[in-house]
Every structure is written in C-alpha cells, then in structure tokens.
Write a protein that binds this DNA or RNA. Structure first.
Lengths: 156, 156
DNA sequence: GGTGAAAGCGAGGACCA
DNA sequence: TGGTCCTCGCTTTCACC
C-alpha cells in the first residue's frame, strides 16, 4: 500500500497540507515545474490514495466551542457486536469530532467539543454516561493546541 | 468571538468539511443559491475566521505509516519556560501529527504516526524518552479510526 | 438579503521532446 | 518523466433588484 514519493511529491503534499486551495499554477511555482506535470502529479497522488481528500478546517472558537476535551472510555465487555453498535452510537453524536478504538487501559478515545465546561459536564453526564456498556470515563481538557494544524510533515 | 450562522452557512460549512475543493457553482447548487451570494458567504466565513483554512488530508497508510499512537506525557515540573521549550521541541518532531497541552494526570497528549510497532518503539525510546523533563509516558495504539474524517457537524 | 452578466484565469487534455 | 499551447468552464466582481 505505501506509495513511493520523490522530493517533488513530498513538496506538493507539504504545500497542499498547508493550503488545499493553492492553484496548480502556484503549486507548480513552488516545486519548480510547469502546470501540466504538476497537475498530473497531484492527480496521481489523489488517485493513488495518498491524498484522501480536501477539507475545510473550522475554528471551534469561532463556532462557539470554547472547550476541547479528550474523553477515554472503558467498556464493560468487548464483543464484536457491542463494539460495533457502540461505534454507531458515537458516530451519531455531533459533539464528537474524532474517535479512535484504542489499546490500553481504555477502549475508546474521543475528541469532543463543547461550548464551555458547564455544557461539557452536561454532555458527559447526559450523553456519554448514558451510553450502554460504559464502565468508566476519563476526561482531560485541552488547555492549548500546541500544533493547531494536523500535519504529517514529509521531510525529504 | 462566536459568529452567528444561519442554516445556509451551516450547510456550506458541512459541505466544505466534506470536500474543500467543491466549486462555488456546486456549492451554490447544494444550498439552493446562485453563485454570487454563495461566494460572498464563503468569503465571509473565511474572513470571520470560521473557516480557518483548507487542508489536503493524507492517508497515513498510503505513506507507509501503519501505526497511529496516542502518547500521554507527564512532565517533571510545570514552569512556563519548561513547558514552552518542551512544546518547541515537540513541534520539531515530524512523527507528531497533533499535540495538545492537557489537564489531568498527564500534561501532553500527542498523536504520533510510525511505520510499524517496532519503529514506534524505537521512536518512543530514542526520541520521546530522551526529551528533557519527561517523567512518565503512556502509549495507546489506535486499532481503528472510528471517524476517519475530523468533522464538526453543524446540525440545523 | 438576492440575481445576472462580463472578464479573466485556471483546470485539464492533446501532443511533443 | 517534463514542457507548450489551447479551450472550456469556473471564479470573481460588477451593477442592480
């Protein structure tokens, strides 16, 4: 599944991670190519699945979400069906921004946004705690996002 | 800081979170507008900071990163300078995809990618453990990303 | 808030080295 | 692979409702 990338591809990916709206002409400039080969490379990166999509990044603050929390959830049991059903429930909750099934002491790690601490408390009590088969919940709040943009740097 | 959004704005944001490359014409279609007002709305969302940017999303798998780990780090001390310096160190490490300063038992929560478990182990030992003032590290591995795309759903 | 139209530019393809 | 040129359609910005 890994795709081999040369220096130019990596430069393209780094640029597009910073700004997905760059025109092919601007991209071509940055990697010292003309538009055609540049465009072909980008298309190849898309088709090979290296670029899985383009996303507008929203500011939680501007949307009124002052609190970002990381919530670890321990399940009471670990059967396939329970996990699958649980994941479906999680997907339907809009406050959950990201969600991983993880190893270790807890089974799920969620990233949750809320208006403020109070409304997070309400959310935890009324939504998370009432999910079936939840044994334990641990919440940790983000004081600050050290790396505001999720980026996979590709040195190269 | 919160900006008030009507139904149409939310629809635009939901659409752009799914695909930042949608043309204004396509967007206008989806929200039953013509291109001009649609374009004005998008620009307003950008200028008001609701849309903080546009990003190409890369596939860790396609880049050869088979392992995603969440690493919790406990510091030995908590002064401003130490935290600041520590954060600078973290920012320079390309394997770290995301990073938050958090409350609770641990002080930092990192999301890290690695080729495989073995190379993660090496990374943890040789890079993370050798950072100054680290007291304790706890790693948890992602079996599966339940929500592949980070999205803030905006119902309404 | 909304429409329609005009100008300019970028995407995407055909073709060559 | 990379480069040149060409065309269609979209973006962007008018003036106006």
């Amino acid at each position: 599944m890994p795709v081999s990338l040369d220096r130019t591809d990596k430069a393209l990916l780094n640029a597009l991670q910073g700004n997905a709206r760059l025109t092919v002409a601007e991209l071509a400039d940055r990697v010292a190519l003309t538009t055609s080969p540049c465009w072909r490379r980008v298309r190849h990166l898309e088709e090979s699945g290296v670029i899985s999509g383009y996303q507008a990044i929203l500011s939680p603050k501007a949307l009124g979400y002052g609190v970002t929390a990381f919530v670890s959830i321990m399940m009471e049991s670990h059967t396939q069906e329970i996990a699958r059903a649980f994941e479906q429930r999680l997907l339907a909750i809009p406050e959950i921004v990201a969600c991983h099934n993880v190893s270790g002491r807890y089974d799920f790690l969620l990233e949750v946004v809320a208006k403020d601490l109070e409304s997070f408390g309400e959310f935890a009590r009324e939504v998370l705690q009432t999910l079936p088969c939840v044994k334990e919940i641990y919440s940790s709040f983000s004081y600050k996002s050290v790396r505001p943009l999720r980026v996979m740097s590709l040195p190269g």
